[in-house]
Simulated assay, not measured.
Amino acid sequence: MTILVAGIGNVFLGDDGFGPAVARALVERGDPPAGVRVVDYGIRGLHLAYDLLDGVDALILVDALPGDAAPGTVTVLEVGPTDLPAGAGVDAHAMDPATVLATLRRLGGSLPPTYVVGCRPAALDEDLGLSPAVAAAVPEAVAAVDVLTDKLTTGRT
C-alpha cells in the first residue's frame, strides 16, 4: 500500500500554511510507516496532480479549510469523485484541493481513496507563521494523519 500525505497551502498567507506545517511536523518526527510518503507541496498543486498520475493507493490532503467552526478546529473528511467540481480546467494559479483533484481527472488520472485533514483558519492575511489557535492544532492534525494511515495500512476501522 502506498499512501501520499500532501501538505498544501501558502506559507505567506498566515494560517494557509497549516498543511505545510503539519507535513513538516510529520517529517521532523522521523521515519513514516512503510509505504507512507509525506510531501510539503505548498502552492505546487499542479505538481501534486502530476505526482498522483504515477498512482498511489490513498491520498491524505492536509490544508486549511473554510467553515463556521472556531479557528483551530480540526476536521477529517472523506472526498470522492462526486465531490469534485464538474468541468474544472487546469489553472496553476487556483490550486485549491478540489481544483487539484479535478485537474488529475482532466489529465487522465483517477482519484484514489482521498481524505482531507483540515483546520479552520483564524487569519489568511499576508503573514508568515500560524495563529496561536492553528499552531496549537498541528499536533491534533498529526494524530489524525496517524489514525488514517493506520486505518489504511491495517484495514482496521
Rank of each mutant, 00 (worst) to 15 (best):
P32I: 10
P32C: 12
P33E: 11
P33Y: 06
A34E: 15
A34W: 11
G35P: 11
G35Y: 12
R37E: 11
V39H: 14
V39C: 09
D40C: 11
D40P: 10
Y41T: 10
Y41D: 07
I43S: 10
R44Q: 15
G45L: 07
G45Y: 13
L46H: 07
L46W: 10
L46S: 04
L46A: 03
H47M: 13
L48Y: 10
L48N: 05
A49N: 08
Y50T: 10
Y50N: 08
L52E: 03
L52F: 01
L52N: 02
L52R: 02
D54P: 06
D54I: 00
V56M: 02
D57W: 03
A58I: 01
I60E: 00
L61C: 05
L61D: 06
V62D: 12
D63Q: 06
D63C: 07
D63M: 06
A64D: 08
P66V: 03
G67C: 06
G67R: 13
G67I: 04
D68Q: 14
D68M: 11
D68P: 15
D68Y: 07
D68V: 13
A69K: 11
A69D: 15
A70I: 02
A70C: 02
G72M: 05
G72R: 03
G72W: 04
G72E: 01
G72T: 04
T73F: 01
T73K: 01
T73I: 00
V74G: 03
V74P: 09
T75W: 03
V76F: 06
L77V: 03
E78H: 02
V79C: 03
P81F: 00
T82V: 09
T82G: 04
D83F: 07
D83G: 12
D83V: 04
L84D: 02
L84S: 05
P85V: 00
P85E: 00
P85S: 00
A86P: 10
A86L: 07
A86G: 05
A88K: 03
G89V: 05
V90M: 12
V90S: 04
V90I: 15
D91V: 08
D91H: 14
A92H: 14
H93W: 13
A94H: 15
A94G: 13
A94S: 15
M95G: 04
L101H: 11
L101F: 15
A102I: 06
T103S: 12
T103Q: 07
L104Y: 12
L104S: 07
L104I: 02
